[in-house]
Design a protein around this nucleic acid. Structure first.
Lengths: 259, 259
DNA sequence: AAGTGGTCTAGACCACACT
DNA sequence: GTGTGGTCTAGACCACTTG
């Protein structure tokens, strides 16, 4: 099928329908929180079969403007103000203020932030982490896994890995709340002074399990970020493995023009 | 349908099939360049209907391991070595070597690189670019739009915007090839010495037009990067707007631990 | 012409959410 | 129970690629 347009080409019906709905959302005909017409209703309204409507809905979901829940329906997402992740967030002055990095940033944009600790305890170092920490794979390390919420929805999972000899004398690192300034402040309290942080960052579609953990439609883009925290002695005393819903973040990096 | 597994949960047949094929690719049973079994063949082999196979194929495509062409079939992609985009790429020493940043990086991973210039000429500054360049929207500026290829496939579009008063005395900036070290070298030749580069970076699903320009499946993640080039006088003399196929790049940033 | 993927139909049945 | 989305079927027809 498909209707002829300008040049003579044909656009599949399911894309026309998806475009129609997306435009209604962008134009504000469908407002945040509104329910998108049910699939059954669309079958009637557009006069096509259920399969075609399902393909259209898949496109609409891919646009990221809509949130679909089995048994309930699809709803227009509240346009979440993105969190701006600046490379300035590691400044000591922000830590001294008693805030961990994520809180300092959230307050700037006036959103409610929450952290829920999923796991704190020893584990055996997986391959890639061991390499970065420069220990043997399988060595005992400390893992701190947590889930970050923003306005009630999960936006980020982060796991910190630290060598055991570094953490064994710092009891705060085993607590859910490591105290003002976060774990980086505790590490510096104990003589691990940071020289630099090295972040590698990659975007990819979310796997099924990741999508459900971050309440995303499967296939929606996620950012995978790995950070080494390097001290003045050149040692990596923490590796942080972070997975973020891509539509929730903008990253900013300042790069000095070195020789 | 779906077969019971360990805990009693059910996994849809189309996901099982997709997983089966993806594993065959990862394990090397299907090698780069091999044709993935046709949909008709899969219908027989797995004993399901065409619709189910199509859903499975959609999943497989989303994995990014496969390249599908209408009328021909699906083929396992040559594993493209990702390009590592390090923040070190702005070091002057790399420019002095006579290479622009992208070439220096491509050579490291032994891939063929190509640039095709799409447009060089004056245009009126769009809103966001004007803000960054600190000029009035609509002012005449110079735009340099180009498309980067890697091993024959397009991976990145980039457009540089420069204020007219900066470029008017630098004829090389109007040429397709601005000479050794690229446009940054030419700008420094003419007294615009860089202090820092500020990059903002966001991932999102590709729009239709973007997907076709970068030869991606629609909805595949892209990275949108905007960079301000700031001189020692504090002026932004270039803004670069870049769109990249997310699966082709890993970004690395080194962040000094400032106070 | 034969083989491939792309769109579409008209139904069935299942799983989840609300009342 | 009613309404919702999720999976699956068994076909039809179209569009692109290759011989």
């Amino acid at each position: 099928m498909g209707t002829a347009v300008g040049g003579g080409k044909t656009v599949p019906r399911y894309l026309q329908i998806a475009e129609d709905i997306v435009q209604q959302i962008r134009a504000g005909v469908l407002k945040p929180g509104d329910q998108v017409p049910s699939e059954a209703e669309m079958v009637e309204r557009y006069g096509v079969s259920g399969g075609t409507i399902r393909k259209a809905m898949a496109e609409i979901r891919a646009s990221g403007l809509v949130d679909t829940r089995h048994g309930k329906g699809s709803y227009v997402k509240a346009r979440p103000p993105v969190r701006h992740r600046s490379s300035d967030r590691f400044r000591r002055s922000l830590r001294r203020g008693g805030k961990a990095a994520y809180l300092a940033e959230s307050e700037q944009s006036g959103a409610t932030a929450k952290v829920s600790v999923i796991f704190i305890g020893p584990m055996e170092a997986p391959e890639e982490i061991a390499q970065r920490l420069d220990v043997e794979p399988g060595t005992q390390i400390l893992a701190r896994r947590r889930l970050y919420f923003r306005n009630g929805t999960p936006v980020e999972t982060a796991t910190s890995y630290l060598p055991w000899d570094v953490v064994k004398d710092i009891p705060e690192l085993f607590a859910e709340n490591p105290g003002g300034g976060g774990i980086y402040a505790r590490l510096e309290d104990h003589g691990h002074v940071f020289a630099e942080f090295v972040e590698t960052l990659q975007a990819r579609p979310a796997a099924k399990a990741e999508a459900s953990e971050l309440a995303l439609s499967p296939g929606a883009p996620v950012i995978h970020l790995l950070r080494n925290a390097v001290t003045e002695t050149g040692r990596v005393v923490e590796v942080c493995d972070t997975l973020m819903a891509a539509d929730q973040f903008v990253f900013e990096y300042r790069i000095p023009a070195a020789n």
